[in-house]
Nucleic acid binder design. Structure first.
Lengths: 369, 369
DNA sequence: ACTATTTATTTCGATATCGAAATAAAGCTG
DNA sequence: CAGCTTTATTTCGATATCGAAATAAATAGT
């Protein structure tokens, strides 16, 4: 049933809580405090955990606060899309050690990208901390067991790529793969705005539009691993080019790519114009925002999530994008009391994906006895 | 973390598997066979389980098959909507003991219904088996902890009704509440067509349209307990009455009620006409079916379920309803390989809800030591 | 300073679980 | 039929966990 050992549950729990003690852990994991004492002592002995003291304490013996021992090792995370690749290394307590980003050459093919991934892993690797695992946040679809990249249309040759096997063979540590947006959702869950939220959806708007879904506190991947791929959601829009009537895929209405193409500008231009409240740009963004808003309201009907986190460059545009999006959701759900989710934009910055990928490896890490 | 005791996990596992032994159980629950032996022996001692012999066995010592001891007690399940109420009692091995159905009087109010629930519980109660729990499948919305009926518009006065407390006070056994459609989903999961399926959605089409959702093998209720309430899903339909353009709630397009109203016939008439392939009826049903199909295809984009189970009277109409529904889903998802769910109609009959409610109580039942 | 109170942790005997080996109960083979 | 193979279950000493009581370390009150 639950194959994780108690040791690993303890480490996970300590990461998730802000500050916790033996007794608190025992309560949370449903284990006797005496047993927890034994386990924690051993983990400290092994250099996995360490103790610090609580500040500000009321009556009663103050707890010894437990935290991951940063010296226990490092994890590396890589995140990329067709244009740019980010790498980070973090220590065992999830603090950033090094980071490195680089633009991918135009028309880089799958082999090139695999090479660059390896170079960046070497570049961010920190001397003198044992490497414990590598997480890769990759664009496009994955196989069900998350060992291969199945397909990504913006990198030539990116088809059925056994990325896990390849990278594992080179660095000889556990390698974990997951889709870009799902990794962003994990990042929000572990150190973003959804830390205390059991049911939420992370909507990533970049070249395409995808979602990462956490339900009952767990990542949901779907039967074939395709859950959350809403890029082809049918929208009855008046498109920018076409005349009317028939439905268009959401990705062609509201993705960053669709917006840039319809305005014929660069991302930087777009963001600048939006901040200057350029009429036309505001209008186009508003239209995209309400399309996304309408889809979010429908998702809310099915899943009744507590929170929606918007990721990608557009999430930074409060007035021009987030506001019309929220308004549309509110309007669409006006007849349903209590269904309105909290809508926020990500605060994690451009390294979010890479940090999340590192966290993926870190959370999957298991103490082998 | 996992507060259920091993004893209860064992009983649950035995119910779910078709035939299992000590060793199989040990494997499934991740427990040493020796420990399992001790536990199972005690449960047999207590009269909770019993042994039988396996038939047809190859080489090796044949296992002693374990099953719930039907004599250990009984559970009662009640299921109702505005028109009719069903009650069943089942023994500890989930075999039907007694059942009883009755029409609710027109304009019955909440108090009347609560009275009738109690009468039917008494009517189906089986002499000489200890009553261990009662499950209630109720229409409308529930509070998050599933203790109260919040609102159901077709029964006057059905507002914030503390049904759990009331029934528990009368019969002095644990009482469990859950929404109608969710109970149907549980029934499909436990003894219907979704027994081996981790991710599926049960769509109930009666007066309204709702869904019960199982993800990662668990019922999903949503943040406020409102997940799956797709009755107000906006459909850009040409309605039967209205002229055009604006969107209508799914419930007004495709529910049994909407169909009956637009044709001005009774359920029985509708089913009969559909079997006789009446032109107009077939046309109306086809329109409703493709509306539901379109919503299912959108749900599939988000959740990528393995299976969709259709419940309610229309599910029996293969040609007139299920076929156009499947076609519409296939058409809408044609561009996405591998996303198409298996679509089936329920096989559980009109007692499904009541049996599911009894099973709800039975699965929640816990051996108190 | 001393005592009561509160909360965290440890101690220690009782109990539960584990794991490896032994035993049991079949079929199969010559 | 005797011996071999296979699978299920039980035995039994080692280890892990539990629970209640004891101890530790703080604050609050007198």
């Amino acid at each position: 049933m639950n194959s994780r050992t108690i040791e690993n549950e303890i480490v996970s729990e300590i990461r998730l809580a802000t500050a916790t003690s033996r007794v608190q852990l025992a309560k949370h994991l449903g284990i006797a405090p005496s047993t927890m004492g034994i386990q924690v002592d051993r983990l400290i002995e092994l250099g996995i955990l360490k103790e610090s003291t609580a500040e500000e304490w009321g009556p009663g013996r103050p707890p010894k606060i437990l935290e991951p021992n940063s010296a226990a090792g490092q994890f590396i995370g890589i995140d990329f899309d067709a244009r740019r690749l980010h790498g980070v290394s973090v220590d065992f307590s999830q603090q950033l050690l090094k980071h490195h980003s680089r633009d991918l050459p135009r028309h880089a093919n799958a082999d090139d990208v695999v090479q660059i991934i390896q170079e960046v892993i070497r570049a961010v690797r920190f001397r003198g901390r044992k490497l414990l695992g590598i997480g890769l946040a990759i664009p496009g679809t994955l196989d069900e067991q998350a060992t291969k990249g199945l397909h990504y249309r913006f990198i030539p040759g990116w088809t059925k790529l056994p990325l896990r096997k390849v990278i594992q063979a080179v660095f000889r540590v556990p390698v974990y793969l997951e889709n870009n947006v799902r990794v962003m959702a994990m990042a929000e869950r572990w150190f973003g705005q959804a830390r205390t939220v059991q049911n939420f959806i992370c909507v990533g708007i970049r070249s395409g539009i995808g979602t990462g879904i956490f339900l009952n506190g767990e990542l949901y991947r779907g039967y074939g691993g395709l859950a959350g791929e809403i890029g082809t959601w049918p929208m009855r829009e008046l498109s920018m080019n076409k005349k009317s009537g028939d439905s268009l895929p959401l990705e062609d209405v509201a993705s960053l790519r669709a917006i840039l193409e319809s305005l014929n500008v660069s991302v930087e231009d777009l963001l600048r114009s939006a901040e200057n409240c350029d009429r036309l740009v505001m209008e186009v963004l508003k239209r995209a925002a309400s399309a996304v808003g309408r889809v979010i309201s429908q998702i809310s009907l099915i899943l009744n999530p507590q929170m929606i986190v918007i990721g990608g460059p557009l999430a930074e545009l409060k007035e021009a994008f987030m506001k019309p999006l929220c308004l549309e959701v509110k309007r669409s759900l006006s007849s349903e009391g209590g269904l309105m989710p909290q809508i926020v934009s990500t605060q994690l910055g451009e390294l979010a994906g890479a940090k999340g990928a590192a966290a993926l490896a870190l959370h999957r890490w298991e103490l082998k006895v």
